[in-house]
C-alpha cells in the first residue's frame, strides 16, 4: 500500500546511490609542477567512455582517505580517457600524488555547470587562467581547437606564480605556434633564464587582440585574480553577461545535499561552478557569505 510520501512524490530508484563512486584505473601519472600532477584514468570495468562538458568536475575518492572535488582537465572529445590535474594541498590530494600506474581511484560525476562553448560560437573567445585555474579551462581549449572554424579570434591569457609553476608547458608551446590561437603567458615573479613576461595576468588583457563587443570571456583562478580580471575586462568594454567565472567552495557531496558550498542562495556544486558574471556580481559585493 502506498505511503503518504509515495503518493506525494515519485520515488527514486533505490539502487542508484549517487554517493557510490565508479572505479577507475590510473593509466598514466604526469608531474606538472612541484605540487601539481595529472592523472589519466580509465574505467576499471572496461565500459570505457566518460562523457563530460568543459567546466565540470568529479568527486575523486582515494581509498580510505576521502574525496576531493577536482575539475576535469582533459579533452572532452576523447571519451576513453578521463584526465584530472590535481594540486596536492590537502590529505586527499597529497595522497593522490603518490598514485602509480595501475592504482585505482573512485570517481563520482560529472557534476556542475559548464563553460559556455555553445554561446561562444561565432564570437571571439578570451580565456583567462590563473595558476591551477588553467586545468578546468583546458577542456575548452581542446574544444575550441577541434572546432576552430566555429569561433572568431581565440585568445589564452595565462598567469602563474613563477615559471616553475606553469602547467602544460609543452602544450602551451604547441598552442603558441598555431597561427589561429593567440597565447600570452606571464608570471608574477621570475629568476634566472626566464625570457617571458613578468606581469600580472590582468595586464595581458589590453594586449590581446579581440573584439570586446563580440567576445565571450572565461575566467578561472584565485578569487582576487578573478575580481581584478573582471574589472579589466569591463574596462575593455565587455559587459557582465559576456564574462564567465568559475567559483570554488568546500564541497562534500557534489549533489546539493551537504550544504557546504553555499554562497547565499547558490549551491556552487550544482548551480556552478561556472557562473555568468551577472549572476554573481551582487554576491561579490558581500563579504564572508
Amino acid at each position: 500500500m502506498a505511503t503518504v510520501l509515495e503518493r506525494q512524490i515519485k520515488m527514486g530508484d533505490d539502487n542508484q546511490n549517487p554517493m557510490h563512486p565508479k572505479l577507475f584505473k590510473v593509466m598514466k601519472v604526469r608531474k606538472e609542477t612541484h605540487d601539481t600532477f595529472s592523472l589519466n584514468l580509465e574505467a576499471s570495468d572496461g565500459s570505457g567512455g566518460f562523457h563530460f562538458q568543459p567546466g565540470q568536475f568529479n568527486m575523486l575518492y582515494l581509498f580510505g582517505v576521502g574525496e576531493a572535488p577536482i575539475s576535469i582537465s582533459g579533452d572532452p572529445g576523447v571519451k576513453k580517457t578521463l584526465t584530472h590535474t590535481i594540486r596536492a594541498v590537502g590529505a586527499v590530494t597529497k595522497g593522490m600524488m603518490k598514485l602509480k600506474k595501475g592504482d585505482s581511484l573512485g570517481v563520482r560525476g560529472p557534476y556542475g555547470t559548464t563553460w559556455p562553448t555553445k554561446e561562444a560560437e561565432g564570437k571571439d573567445v578570451v580565456i583567462i587562467a590563473g595558476g591551477i585555474g588553467l586545468a578546468p579551462l583546458r577542456p575548452v581549449i581542446y574544444h575550441l581547437l577541434s572546432n576552430r572554424e566555429k569561433f572568431g579570434k581565440t585568445v589564452l591569457l595565462y598567469g602563474a606564480r613563477t615559471p616553475d609553476d606553469l602547467l602544460y608547458v609543452q602544450e602551451l608551446e604547441q598552442w603558441r605556434s598555431r597561427f589561429d590561437f593567440e597565447v600570452l603567458v606571464t608570471v608574477d615573479r621570475a629568476l634566472g633564464k626566464w625570457q617571458g613576461n613578468i606581469e600580472v595576468v590582468t595586464r595581458l588583457i589590453p594586449k590581446a587582440t579581440y573584439d570586446p563587443a563580440n567576445s565571450i570571456a572565461m575566467v578561472c583562478g584565485p578569487s582576487i585574480m578573478m575580481r581584478f580580471t573582471v574589472l579589466e575586462l569591463m574596462k575593455q568594454g565587455l559587459t557582465q553577461n559576456q564574462i564567465y567565472i568559475s567559483e570554488e567552495r568546500n564541497m562534500k557531496c557534489g549533489i546539493g545535499h551537504c550544504g557546504h558550498c553555499q554562497i547565499e542562495h547558490i549551491f556552487v556544486c550544482k548551480d556552478g561552478p561556472v557562473f555568468r558574471y551577472d549572476a554573481m556580481v551582487e554576491l561579490f559585493k558581500k563579504r564572508d557569505i
Binding site: 590563473g130 608574477d188 584565485p222
Partner: peptide, 9 residues
C-alpha cells in the same frame, strides 16, 4: 597584485 602572491599557498 604581485605582492598579494595570489597563486601562493
Amino acid at each position: 597584485l604581485q605582492l598579494l602572491d595570489v597563486y601562493g599557498d
